[in-house]
Design a protein around this nucleic acid. Sequence first.
DNA 1: ATTTAGCGGACTCACTTTTA
DNA 2: TAAAAGTGAGTCCGCTAAAT
Length: 290
Amino acid sequence: MNLKQLITPKNEDGSVDHRYIPIAQSIVDLAGERVEAQLRKLYAATTNLEKESASAGLQLVIALFSIPMDERFERSKFKKHIREQLQEIGFKPSKVSKLMGAGEFYADYSSCTFNSDFDLESTEDEYNEKRERFLGEYFNNISKLYELSRMNGTAIHRVSTDLARDNKVYSQAELEKLRQIYPKDVYERRGRKPNRHHVQETNLLPSVVTHESLKVMEDAAEENVTRQPESAHSLISRFFTLVASGVIEQRLAEYTPAAQAHLIDEIKTGITLLEDFVSKNKTVEVTSVN
DNA sequence: ATTTAGCGGACTCACTTTTA
DNA sequence: TAAAAGTGAGTCCGCTAAAT
């Protein structure tokens, strides 16, 4: 922390406004070293305390989401007020956002109960044990809980299953990646710049929407080819990106087991189609597809 | 020497309030 | 009352410090 830089007014783009540097220097000189030292101390202490108190903040939020109350009026009132007060107490705004997200997730997940319709692989005891282990593992890490709070059910299930089965604990970066593939809110656009290298992903999304079933996918592909030809290379890489992204698994998980089996059968017929395609085009040297 | 955690700031988006 | 300005929430990303 440098007091002179801190108090010097900034330009629109955040760089220091050079016109004010000499004045800022005079102000700092007049205030004196003791002032600067004390402010530095305040900064260090508050930063430290905020870090130290994070888990207390988390527990308050967990409590907020654990008490039953009317959602529309009471809960939203408390959410708003507690958010403001946490900021007033000394948590930074972005920290409060994380605490709220993490706490809500934790509370919701703790109150999840066993449902034999959904969980076919385990008993109620196993389920409870798995849940406790999962919460215990991730409780101490607010950022990880926060990432989890922004994923859909498929991804959360994966994380908790990986822990139960292989003792795998996800790093924050891994969770972030998983979240990008399985976001809870597909249309979230906040804090994200409109273009830049996101162009690829945004191209992918509409294709995912139109390709809900294989039938639609075939139609759409044909249309693309006839109306506005897309290069073979681009078509192929788009296909593999779609498969590799895991989006299909994600959508599949939303169906009943019977419906899933049916869709898998549809995909199987696709294998035959692919094989036919490859053998027809044998003359063009085709490298193996794994 | 790399990888990971995590903070803080710039930025976007959705609302709300003010202004003309 | 429509447009502009302001506000608040929440995301992404660069950076430092810690861990491995």
